[in-house]
Design a protein around this nucleic acid. Structure first.
Length: 659
DNA sequence: GACAGAGCGGTTTTT
DNA sequence: CCGCTCTGTC
């Protein structure tokens, strides 16, 4: 049953609508119900229905829910912003400067591209800075002639970067929003076609949109009655990526007939948890006033505990999970450990492993960050897009085939001179005569290897398997790994990747281009949903999820709020406010039980012992009223008292196991 | 000209 | 602790 506000949000179809939905107030439910409603009432057809999310996970979940509810749900267009942009570019490729099979470059490759555009002698640092700046401009929807900067040459580099990416037929993530936007703005016919095609547009997590994404929404909407945006200003945690909370107000300006519905009844958490969340977020300024509540009962007080060290924190959290699971007979998957940054996961992971507790970590080091996966992705890209110089540079001497820097530099010079891509340069044999005979022969062998596989008339997974065996890649991984565990891990990594590709291939029969596109927008390996495992993730990754038991660890000044947010706090409080929202997101993930902890000393990163730091419990802990907690008084316990407490807990647990 | 081994510097959050 | 840069060797 929907409550009256939810019902109103579902049935409001004659105006653009903004749904301000507090955490756990059923916003995904409203979106899917609304889709069902619109289709049932023939307001729009499934293929005119577009829903946009920010993460693959959210898109997948929404699809699943919609499928259960809606007949003909296969036709629905539910995707992330970026994959919608990709699709638009592919379908309208004839109207762009790009060619079929364009690549998508990840951040580290983009940095290399920028570095290569700088005059000799400039260091990575500058490239990094420029990359950051350019990304900011792209997120703001700015063209090089519109930007203002104090960094000399930055605008020129931006222009060169845009041109170079066209030349190598590649885009970065920001381009997937920006290029479609520019295309629609520049082509009336294309714009109108898409506006007609979209009967209704839903945007989830609207508070996370940046300026270019907002412009894209606006452009796609045209007149704009058939738009529903769902968001929560208190959960805006992507400001660093250009997200503008102001977009919530802009909606009111740009769509004067906008209706606003607030969802405040929470169906997730017990009321003490919600009170704590409200109290914390109260310390931020609020354009829209909103207070979430639930009738699920008071529930347990929040537990706030201080530990002596991060090691102890990890041990005790794991001990507590064992204890709780034993008492409550819940599944491991009802427990989540949440943290501000990925490196915090390490100790927790160890503790879980020692205690033989199954766990599933999302995020962390992305699957696609491993050099082995990057290698294989580069091969896939080169096969699908021979113009991709970045992929070429990675493949040309991996595994080592005796083609070194000198040769590559020569090729690069010739290519620049001829205005051709690296691969094309290499495939025209007379051009290579400037190279030494031995180099020429090696390069030619490489070109043949790639060409042979480009011409194979079979599915992408089979082509890749053939290529991997021909370059003897597994063997190369074994040679280059310097210890036994690395050998095993990396071999497994490669085999997992191939297995995954195989699985994709067997149910979709992709060609190389389709495989590349699919993989390029994935951030992690398809999670074989480990049935019963403790979930570990960053606060960013946890948004949208819920767990019976939540452990929020490392809630210390310098971590949450993060040190960098404190550094520029004197200029504005924006950064700390965003950290507070992160805290809010963390608290509101918990359904029944929330355990927050901080540690008294923490090893400084990359340093040996005896360099512990203590920056104190987070300011956000002081914002939680004492009467909602049991245990925050532990802040004032002596070391001995705390040790005694921990001992007692441990003894109780042990007794339980020995029963 | 290519490559292996040794030293150094750098961690917020992600599509 | 891992990947990149510098150096000496083949």
């Amino acid at each position: 049953m929907l409550n009256p506000q939810q019902q109103a949000a579902v049935e409001k179809t004659d105006r653009p609508l903004l749904v301000l939905a507090g955490a756990g107030c059923g916003k995904t439910r409203v979106i899917t119900e609304k889709m069902a409603h619109l289709i049932r009432t023939r307001f729009c057809s499934p293929d005119g229905m577009f829903a946009i999310t920010f993460t693959n996970k959210a898109a997948k979940e929404m699809k699943q829910r919609a499928m259960q509810m809606i007949q003909g749900g296969e036709g629905l267009n539910i995707s992330t912003f970026h994959s919608l942009g990709l699709r638009l570019m592919q379908q309208e490729i004839a109207h762009t400067q790009f060619h079929r099979g364009f690549s998508i470059l990840d951040a580290s490759e983009c940095q290399k591209v920028i570095l290569s555009l700088l005059p000799k002698g400039f260091k990575k640092e500058l490239a990094n800075q420029l990359q950051w700046q350019i990304s900011g401009w792209k997120n703001a929807g700015l063209k090089p002639e519109q930007v203002e900067t104090t960094v000399p040459m930055a605008a020129e580099i931006y222009q060169q970067y845009l041109n170079y990416m066209v030349n190598i037929n590649a885009m970065d993530f920001d381009d997937l929003i920006l290029r479609p936007l520019w295309l629609l703005n520049g082509h009336q016919e294309v714009r109108e076609r898409w506006q007609q095609r979209i009967d209704y547009l839903m945007v989830d997590e609207y508070q996370d949109t940046n300026t270019s994404q907002y412009q894209l929404i606006k452009t796609l909407m045209g007149q704009g009655n058939h738009l529903t945006c769902v968001g929560d200003d208190d959960q805006s945690i992507y400001g660093w990526r250009g997200a503008q909370i102001e977009n919530l107000q802009l909606l009111q300006r740009d769509f004067p007939r906008l209706a606003v519905v607030k969802l405040e009844q929470n169906y997730r958490s017990s009321s003490i948890i919600l009170q704590a969340a409200n109290e914390v977020i109260k310390n931020n300024p609020h354009p829209f006033d909103k207070k979430i509540w639930s009738d699920l009962g008071e529930g347990e007080p929040i537990n706030i505990t201080a530990y002596q060290s991060a090691e102890e924190e990890a041990e005790q959290v794991v001990t507590d999970i064992c204890f709780q699971k034993r008492v409550n007979l819940k599944n491991y998957s009802d427990y989540a450990i949440l943290y501000r940054s990925n490196h915090q996961a390490k100790l927790l992971e160890q503790a879980l492993r020692i205690n033989n507790i199954p766990y599933q970590m999302s995020g962390g080091r992305s699957f696609f960050d491993y050099s082995e996966i990057k290698d294989l992705m580069a091969y896939i890209r080169l096969l699908a897009n021979p113009r991709d110089n970045s992929a070429f540079l990675r493949c040309i001497n991996t595994p080592k085939r005796g083609i070194g820097m000198q040769t590559v530099q020569q090729i690069s010079l010739i290519a620049k001179h001829q205005g051709k891509s690296f691969f094309q340069t290499c495939s025209e044999s007379q051009i290579l005569n400037e190279l030494s005979p031995s180099a020429k022969q090696k390069v030619t062998a490489f070109v043949h290897l790639i060409q042979n596989h480009q011409q194979m008339k079979t599915t992408a997974d089979k082509v890749l398997t053939s290529l991997v065996s021909q370059i003897d890649y597994i063997n190369w991984v074994n040679i280059s790994a310097n210890n036994k565990t690395a050998k095993i891990n990396k071999t497994k990594l490669v085999r997992d990747f191939l297995k995954w590709v195989d699985a994709i291939g067997s149910n979709k029969s992709f060609n190389m281009e389709e495989l590349m596109n699919y993989l390029s927008l994935q951030t992690s390996q398809e999670e074989e949903n480990k049935e019963d495992a403790v979930k570990m993730m960053t606060l960013h990754a946890a948004k949208g999820l819920e767990f019976e038991h939540v452990y929020l660890v490392g809630v210390e000044e310098g971590i949450l709020p993060h040190a960098n947010s404190l550094a520029d706090a004197n200029e504005s409080n924006d950064a700390v406010e965003e950290e507070r929202r992160l805290m809010y997101v963390g608290i509101t993930r918990a359904m029944r039980r929330l355990k927050v902890s901080y540690v008294k000393k923490r090893k400084k990163r990359f340093q040996d012992d005896n360099s512990d730091t203590f920056s104190g419990p987070s300011r956000f802990l002081d914002e939680i009223p004492a009467e909602l907690t049991h245990g925050y008084h532990q802040k004032n316990l002596t070391v001995e008292q705390q040790k005694a407490n921990n001992k007692k807990n441990f003894a109780a647990l042990k007794a339980l196991f020995e029963e």
